[in-house]
């Protein structure tokens, strides 16, 4: 188990450890199958490219918040909590993408005795294109006096 991070130990401007994700046709299919998502742009290349003008099949946008949830819950540890997550879908995530999911602390405040950390978030592809920028709020434990 990684050691627990505490509110006391983080500072504004600090970046959190990144998470790397590989987008491929198999994990897109797994996702569509388990949630019963039958939109052809996610699995039918000729339809996506010829009919919708897309570069390839595209990953469901909803996978991006999943990546952020994984990034932030891992960082927050068992005593921390992911409270809020906002995302904007700017560029498609497509098979072959190697995504870097990261975040930077933009604020820290104590609210009702709890440590609140605000972060700006990004998912960039291997060309440095930000696909899904985001914002998050994480609650971290405060060290006992």
């Amino acid at each position: 188990m990684p050691s627990q991070i505490y509110f006391d130990d983080v500072s504004v401007g600090q970046e959190i450890p990144v998470l790397t994700k590989n987008v491929n046709t198999v994990n897109i299919l797994m996702y569509c199958a388990v949630v019963w998502l039958m939109d052809r742009i996610h699995f039918d290349n000729p339809f996506a490219v010829k009919r919708r003008g897309l570069p390839d099949i595209v990953a469901p946008g909803n996978m991006a918040p999943d990546y952020y949830v994984q990034l932030l819950t891992a960082w927050a540890g068992d005593k921390g909590r992911l409270r809020k997550l906002g995302v904007q879908f700017r560029n498609f995530m497509v098979p072959g993408n190697v995504l870097t999911c990261g975040g930077r602390i933009t604020g820290k405040t104590v609210e009702d005795g709890k440590g609140r950390v605000d972060l700006e978030l990004w998912i960039k592809n291997q060309d440095g294109v930000v696909c899904v920028p985001g914002k998050g709020v994480v609650e971290l434990p405060i060290r006992a006096e």
Binding site: P65, K84, L85, V87, Q88, F89
Partner: peptide, 11 residues
């Protein structure tokens, strides 16, 4: 044609 613009989640 529809695309997803953005989402805000609170847990």
């Amino acid at each position: 044609g529809w695309v997803r613009g953005g989402e805000e989640l609170e847990f």
